[in-house]
Design a protein around this nucleic acid. Structure first.
Length: 566
RNA sequence: GAUUCGUUAGCUCAGCUGGUAGAGCACAUCCCUUUUAAGGAUGGGGUCCUGGGUUCGAACCCCAGACGAAUCACCA
């Protein structure tokens, strides 16, 4: 059922076609300017051609004002009847513009630049072209002279499901996504300046490796094998290092079949990179250099407002080992503790544990509970317990630790990096430990990837690798608290659509075509629902519907309704 | 997964103690040749998320469900 406004727009569409205008023309429309160009450089009487969406219209007799919104901004247009229609025939203004065009229509405008009496740069329209008719009314937020928005389009569900509307109507949304693009470009520029190679690796993987997470499963028909959407691309990028590239990186969509919240979406973007002959100390320097570069290039400053805190991305960032961090925040030195002592410490600190947790997991819990959220300013946390990191090289000074760092910003993980494990024998035994975890029921334990082991057996140079969450980085640099604000189309439950009546079902009952839609619209959406109702009630409801919608058909007779029930 | 909140016109939202469904913008008609959030006048527009229940009577109370948001838990 169309709303009144939608019906009116469809009627206007018909009138436009009857008048001889194609509402959806095929031809290229050549523009000379963007709105922004005209506003930036005022050239009185300059002839311009622009295209965009009509966002405001104010008709005042023979003159009208409007606002045209294009990809770069908005500009006011002025229409005078006798300028648009210099001849006798005034229908282009009186009918087409005033009656049949609507807010939201895409128009091409030819005219001359001028300033109104109030001094606003505008276009005096000489010719108007309909480029696409809009059949659904847009929300109409208004900004007042103090910059306060009234009637903002701000229902999150509508905004995410109809992002196209959100983008048309909410300027700041577009800005966020433009900035996202700039951040990614800037990172790519930085990596490419180092002469690393941008690569692409499989998204469909038969063994989902490189991280601890539950995968999405799919099936390949021709090969008749299960395939997984990648949870990471780490193992493939390392194979390329084996193959002799010194530096590779990939901007990768990864997929994890886990819970969603304001920092997690089932598909998300990571940039992973691997560089041969480096270690995690080198990678820390590299990471802070890269982030500083991006901030300066995109924002022009290293001071970033994140949720009201000023966070400085000026290098160097603070570095602290996990054990020292725990010492700093709890006053307890856990470095020499046994598993039992750690468990007691957890109890004392009120950190929840369970029996399956090993030494490493216990340490990680303490850190997660007591330390992590304190790191607002960028901080490298280094030297994680070995159980947590099956793909990471053991620490050169302490075999219980690994050469790993995570970069914490605003209490959240932004990046994760290792001195990569390149000892195939050690790697195999770490994978086997994961298999044992899986057998114990850990559904996030890693799969064993024998081909990856084989690759390491051919020899991988010492390498450092790093992954950085692009969505989170964008959230930080755009000061957005929710991942949904930095993804065009965040994951949502599928929308339910009213697909209309199943006609055959009604025809089976000998119901005439003309009454099917009214029956459906009256709430009898299936045969079963209709047959459960009383014929007299249906009869009344249908004639009520006929009257209300002013249907041009005779009222239905009770006998006819009753005949459906026999 | 738990708890809380929300769902009323195209959009943003009111709607008291259960008693005929409201406003602003948008839309339509008429008037108006430079408006600045929205010139003036008049008018049309509703599956009050869905399904049950209570009641003489439900947008409102009760039960179940759908969708969304926040917090927490789980998870990187």
């Amino acid at each position: 059922m169309l709303s009144e406004q939608e019906q009116i727009r469809r009627e206007s569409l018909q009138k436009i076609i009857a008048y001889g205008i194609n509402p959806y023309p095929a031809e290229e429309f050549k523009t000379t300017h963007y709105s922004l160009d005209i506003l930036k450089k005022y050239n009185e009487d300059e002839k311009v051609i622009i295209a965009g969406r009509l966002m405001r219209r104010k008709i005042q007799g023979k003159a009208s004002f409007g606002t045209l919104q294009d990809a770069k901004g908005r500009i006011q247009i002025y229409l005078n009847r006798d300028v648009i229609c210099p001849d006798e025939d005034k229908s282009m203004y009186n009918d087409v513009f005033k009656k049949w065009l609507d807010l939201g229509d895409i128009l091409g405008i030819e005219g001359k630049v001028f300033k109104t009496m109030v001094g606003e740069i505008s276009i005096n329209v000489e010719k108007i072209h309909l480029l696409s008719k809009s059949l659904k009314p847009l929300p109409q937020p208004k900004k007042d002279s103090e910059g306060v928005t009234h009637d903002a389009f701000n229902d999150p569900e509508l905004r995410y499901r109809r992002r196209y509307v959100d983008l048309v109507v909410n300027d700041h949304v577009k800005e966020t996504f433009i900035k996202r693009s700039k951040i990614i470009n800037s990172m790519r520029k930085f990596l490419s300046q180092k002469e690393y190679i941008e690569v692409e690796t499989p998204i469909l993987q038969s063994i989902p490796g490189g991280a601890a997470a539950r995968p999405f499963v799919t099936h390949h028909n021709a090969l008749d094998v299960p395939l997984y959407l990648r949870i990471a691309n780490e193992l493939y990028l390392k194979r390329l290092i084996v193959g002799g590239f010194d530096g590779v990186y990939e901007f990768a969509k990864d997929f994890r079949n886990e819970g969603m919240d304001k920092t997690h979406n089932p598909e998300f973007t990571q940039m992973e990179m691997y560089v041969a002959y480096k270690d995690y100390h080198w990678m820390m320097n590299f990471t802070e250099e890269m982030l500083e570069f991006i901030c300066l290039e995109v924002l022009g400053t290293t001071n970033v407002n994140i949720g009201g805190e000023i966070v400085s991305f000026k290098k160097p960032f603070k570095r602290i080992s996990m054990i020292d961090s725990i010492k700093e925040h709890t006053g307890i030195d856990i470095s020499k503790m046994s598993e039992l002592e750690l468990r007691k410490t957890c109890e004392k600190l009120d950190v929840a544990t369970d029996a399956s947790m090993g030494k490493g997991k216990l340490i990680d819990e303490i850190f997660g509970e007591k330390c992590e959220s304190n790191y607002i300013q960028p901080t490298f946390i280094t030297d994680y317990p070995v159980e947590m990191s099956p793909l990471c090289k053991k620490h050169r000074d302490n075999p219980e630790l690994t050469e790993r760092f995570e970069l914490m910003v605003n209490g959240k993980e932004l990046a994760n990096a290792y001195s990569e494990l390149n000892d195939p024998i050690d790697q195999k035994s770490r994978f086997e430990d994961q298999v044992k975890l899986a057998e114990k029921g850990d559904d996030e334990a890693m799969f064993i990837d024998l081909d990856f082991i084989r690759a390491l057996e051919y020899g991988m140079p010492p390498t450092s690798g790093m992954g950085i969450g692009i969505d989170r980085l964008v959230m930080f640099l755009c000061n957005q608290a929710s991942i949904q604000e930095v993804l065009f189309f965040p994951q949502m439950k599928p929308e339910k659509w009213d697909t209309g009546p199943n006609k055959n079902e009604y025809l089976e009952l000998n119901i005439s075509e003309t009454w099917i839609q009214p029956i459906y619209e009256s709430g009898y959406t299936t045969k079963e629902i209709l047959l459960e109702a009383k014929p007299t009630a249906v009869h009344q409801k249908l004639n009520g519907y006929r009257k209300k919608n002013k249907l041009d058909i005779p009222p239905i007779l009770l006998e006819e309704v009753q005949s459906w029930y026999n």
